[in-house]
């Protein structure tokens, strides 16, 4: 199991008159094919940690290596490229661009990467959406879909460039229980069937309980990091 993400003493302090410590001295290693749930009470720094791991935010202390590359010295453009190639994001809200169709939304990261032809991109987007049960909705706009459908589009978009890691911030936070279950299944299948690593921030204990690894945060620091029986892999 090679390390995809290695964090050492990761700290993020929000500069203010009274500095707020969002993430405190977190060290963890994430390998391939892991399904990790980050849990903790509100304000415990779950999302902050996820953003740090996803290179959306920079730590104020500690080091973070993604696929062996030290990210602390990288400029914003290099980080953007790493995000593009290695990481996919799913947020609590779908964050699809409302002006674009479902298929176009999914194609955006591919087009940015620019490795596929227009036809290949269309086909890949169609394939991803089909697998996620959205075959008939390719040319609809996001606002014509239900919340669960939108979230699945967001997952498809996160998978667009075949990333190694999918980072999900409360992916089921705004969904009903049925859609939540669907999205959870999809995320788990990413690990089981596609060999991705999924890191999901969640306060849904049901989902957390079924993850392979649970990291519990309190006040920005890791208080427990436990793995389920490896039989699940």
């Amino acid at each position: 199991m090679s390390a995809l993400i290695e964090a050492e003493h990761l700290t993020r302090i929000l500069p203010a008159t009274v500095p707020v410590t969002l993430v405190r001295d977190v060290s963890l290693t994430v390998g391939e094919r892991e399904f990790i749930a980050i849990t903790g009470p509100s304000g415990s720094g779950k999302s902050s940690l996820l953003y740090l791991l996803g290179l959306l935010d920079r730590p104020t202390g500690g080091t973070l290596r993604i696929a062996g590359q030290d990210t602390s010295a990288m400029d914003d453009d290099a980080l953007a490229r790493l995000r593009l190639e290695m990481l996919g994001f799913v947020f609590q809200f779908h964050f699809l661009l409302p002006e674009f169709t479902v298929s176009e939304n999914v194609q955006l990261p591919m087009r940015k990467a620019g490795r596929l032809s227009a036809r290949e991109m269309r086909e890949r987007a169609a394939g991803l959406l089909e697998e996620l049960g959205l075959a008939g909705h390719l040319d609809k706009r996001p606002d014509q879909l239900s919340g669960g459908q939108r979230q699945r589009v967001a997952v498809a978009r996160a998978l667009a460039n075949d990333p190694h890691v999918v980072l999900a911030d409360e992916p089921t936070g705004s969904l009903d229980s049925k859609s939540s279950e669907q999205v959870f299944q999809i995320l788990r299948d990413l690990v089981r069937k596609r060999g991705k690593t999924v890191i999901a921030v969640t306060h849904d204990m049901d989902i957390a309980a079924r993850a392979d690894r649970r990291i519990h945060l309190v006040d920005g620091g890791v208080v427990s990091d436990e793995r389920a029986a490896p039989a699940a892999v």
Partner: peptide, 14 residues
């Protein structure tokens, strides 16, 4: 949208 596109891997210059 800027935030979204950045999270997808678009750069500041983009």
């Amino acid at each position: 949208d800027i935030a979204i596109l950045k999270s997808l891997g678009f750069t500041q210059g983009n």
